[in-house]
Design a protein around this nucleic acid. Structure first.
Lengths: 290, 290
DNA sequence: GGTTGTATGAAGAATATGTTTCAGAACACA
DNA sequence: TGTGTTCTGAAACATATTCTTCATACAACC
């Protein structure tokens, strides 16, 4: 049975949807350290994946092998092929795709961006930003540009769950003056402005600064002109092999900030989140679909 | 016993002079296809080297191991070290921050997530998804959950610039039935549903499927229940040292898809983008700020 | 040629491994 | 809320592995 040319990894990919919870858990472990993790005994693998041995045996069957030993034999032979072929580099990302596949090129590039961004990122500055955002004495407003509005919205959604006094400023700049009025001295404005910097954002930043608002600006490596008005700036690398720029690194930093804010104000936000959860539950009950 | 830092190969070389004829024969076989040949059972190895099983066990002892299984364990761990991705071995990320700073912990974790996600991701599947999204014969609708709406919106914004017939479905699920009506057989629905899967999304997916709509589902490693109705699924790793889950990897994949769609339909989208640019320029002139 | 020491593998004992069965848990569905 | 289905792991069972013992083969030396 089943000595056709499919690798174990491929079979797992193909059959992943048909796998059960415990089986997926196991599949993940196998792929995580592929294919070495499958080289030990069925017991060891099961323990490693925190499932029972029958689960392992069952999955082997499900993937089309006669049993675990047969799957293991296949893994061994794959390993042999990999090892003995010097051309097979182990640092490929999507293992079944050529090095030149967009996924792999993109991955290399994004890692590079992340590295370079973090190299230039001052940890102390990061901590200051976190402190500013954790301070509930002042309100936080979030605004983004044409393409970065999604980032603003993502950040807002999370911040909103952790603290009071957070506003997402609309996309449409004609309404911005109203928001400006509600920003007081010491309040915080989180702004996103990436390449193809927007004139409106610059004006907004200047006026906010004039009101004594502290501005945290997320921009690219070259820096938005709004930087002049900013209290803190974070420069992300955004170039990728694409017509478009990448927001991945910026989102990474946002998540790190969110996580830091969260742990800095855990006690406060814990209650808040529980309340929120309860509210969501309730709304769900009231909602009716179709 | 014997878990000092010497590899099996080193031990064999060092102790080669003290080995007997049968043992040397065996040693040569082990080194010949190192270290894979030692991964099978003692019986298999013995047969392969044309010696008896006791010879193998004896040699393992002679090399300083407690027995054959112990030697095999050592071989496995050597293998693991060889195979393991060089990209994990980084020098600190944010150089001026301690390893334990949230930025560095986050970075490690996200890279891990990316690597594991790509390991799971079938390049062929990716290409199919790109093809679906490039096909202008059918419309594309995008819908997200509570936290993933920002991703949906980000994706939508880019897609909208590259092709016609793209809709972003509102957050509020009470309006979804209307959107459903406009989806025809063969149309594409891009859905985001991460951990804390939403009931409404599941229903929506089922109803869309019933209408013959092709669903591309972005979910996490465990898989949203909406997967049952999906034509294609992409599972991203989302766990990070935070109360919240990470969307970085999903965004990475989105950007890769966007880039691929773009280059797949460059000629068409080029004109479109130039048109768009011109439009934006015009609007800017008409807009007045404050 | 006989003696002695070492090397080797066959065979069986001890151990670990892999499989099957089955009962309870979790889940989906009505 | 109850019912049927699927999933899961504990335990018993069957099988394969590894180790030990021991008889034989071989070579070196007297």
């Amino acid at each position: 049975m089943s000595t056709d040319g499919f690798t174990v990894a491929q079979r797992i990919h193909d059959g992943f949807d048909g796998l059960t919870r415990a089986e997926r858990q196991l599949a993940n472990i196998i792929l995580e350290n592929y294919p070495v993790s499958g080289m030990g005994s069925i017991t060891a693998l099961a323990e490693n994946a925190e499932v029972s041995t029958p689960t392992v045996a069952r999955m082997a069957r499900k993937l089309g092998f006669g049993g675990f030993p047969e799957m293991q034999a296949q893994l061994r032979s794959e390993l042999e092929a990999t090892i003995s072929d010097p051309l097979t580099k182990h640092d490929k990302w999507a293992t079944d795709a050529p090095d030149t596949h967009i996924l792999n090129r993109f991955a290399d590039n994004v890692i590079d961006n992340l590295r370079n961004t973090l190299k230039h990122l001052n940890a102390a500055k990061f901590d200051q930003i976190v402190a500013l955002l954790s301070d509930t004495e002042h309100t936080v407003a979030v605004v983004g540009g044409r393409l970065s509005h999604a980032l603003a919205s993502y950040f807002f959604t999370h911040m909103q769950m952790m603290r009071d006094g957070v506003t997402l400023i609309e996309r449409n700049s004609s309404s911005w003056p109203h928001y400006l009025l509600s920003l007081k001295e010491g309040d915080v404005l989180v702004m996103f402005d990436m390449r193809r910097y927007e004139q409106d954002l610059l004006r907004f930043a200047e006026m906010a600064q004039a009101r004594g608002v502290k501005i945290i600006l997320f921009t690219d490596q070259w820096g938005s002109p709004a930087g002049k008005a900013a209290t803190h700036q974070i420069h992300s690398r955004i170039e990728v092999p694409s017509t478009w720029d990448s927001s991945v690194v910026t989102m990474f930093i946002l998540e790190a900030i969110i996580s830091a804010v969260q742990s800095q104000s855990w006690e406060r936000s814990k209650d808040r989140m529980e309340e929120l959860e309860a509210l969501f539950e309730k709304t769900r009950l009231f909602r009716k679909f179709v």
